[in-house]
């Protein structure tokens, strides 16, 4: 009998919503139990945070010194490390504090290596250790997690979803809320994977899946200005759930008062 691949689910600073992609699987949760040996998944029960595993799912951002030590151990103990969700992949909503700390955040916060170990910032997993696969979304959904897991169990890399929410809108024949209603929709710069959820609900996408491929945030920001949004509002559009990742970071920062590119 061959051994089942070993799986761990680790949590850092987060709302727990991405782990629910597994806990909400229903019957498939029991199927999963037949496919992998879940050695660490605190919310579901098994606790063995230092176990060697084949696949580690990581939720949440790095906020404390102990988090830093812990993620390094997780990395050392895991063959394949997958971040699940916006907090782990991009810092999440709590990383907005990175923008608020200090007066000179605009120019220097992003690339300063000395901040990496700071307790004052929320950081993505990739800022601390090598990540093998990133699943975007706030939250990730069941399909994304199961697809990734299935692919990895077959020994292949999952196909990365990078195209824009706009493409999902078209395929699902949703009416464009930006063109028809002038809503400040982030769909043109946001990665798909959600199924164009917000436009299909008649509202603007707020970018919870992070930046798409070839995201032109400059042009979209100017379009928002044309819709009547004031610069501070445009900045806040881009500085939401995935504020720390480019081009959302610059796409928003250039509209913050005092930056000459906003004129």
């Amino acid at each position: 009998m061959t051994m089942k691949p070993r799986l761990a689910v680790h949590k850092f600073s987060s709302c727990d919503g991405c782990q629910l992609a597994l806990l909400n699987l229903g019957e498939a949760l029991l199927t999963l139990d037949g496919l992998v040996d879940t050695v660490h998944f605190a919310e579901a029960g098994p606790v063995n945070p230092e176990a060697q595993v084949d696949i580690a799912f990581v939720e949440g951002s790095i906020n404390t010194r102990e988090d830093v030590e812990r993620i390094r151990r997780v990395r050392a103990n895991s063959d394949f490390l997958v971040t699940i969700g916006a907090c782990a992949t991009a810092g999440g909503l709590q990383a907005l504090r990175n923008l608020a700390d200090g007066a000179g955040w605009l120019a220097d916060v992003y690339a300063r290596p000395g901040y990496i170990d700071s307790l004052d910032e929320a950081r993505a997993i990739r800022d601390h250790v090598k990540v093998d696969l990133e699943l975007w979304g706030c939250p990730v959904n069941r399909r994304q997690v199961v697809e990734a897991l299935r692919a990895l169990l077959f020994g292949v890399l999952p196909v990365e979803e990078k195209e824009k929410v706009c493409m999902e809108c078209k395929r699902r024949q949703a009416v464009c809320v930006l063109v028809t209603r002038g809503e400040p929709c982030l769909g043109p710069v946001t990665r798909g994977g959600c199924g164009a959820l917000c436009p299909r609900f008649g509202r603007d996408c707020y970018g919870c899946y992070g930046p798409s491929e070839a995201a032109n945030t400059d042009a979209l920001g100017r379009r928002f200005a044309g819709l009547g949004l004031v610069p501070a509002d445009i900045a806040r559009r881009f500085h939401g759930i995935n504020s720390q990742v480019e081009p959302f970071l610059t796409g928003g920062s250039q509209w913050v008062a005092g930056d000459d590119r906003s004129t």
């Binding site: 727990d16 919503g17 991405c18 404390t64 999440g92 909503l93 709590q94 504090r97 806040r236 759930i241």
Partner: peptide, 27 residues
């Protein structure tokens, strides 16, 4: 580790609040 939700909400438009506060708890 403080996630400072009450602080993020400051200066945000009222219409942004429901999407932001949801993130306090996934459950």
């Amino acid at each position: 580790p403080p996630r400072l939700f009450e602080k993020f909400l400051e200066e945000r438009g009222y219409h942004e609040v429901p999407d932001m506060v949801a993130r306090i708890c996934g459950i």
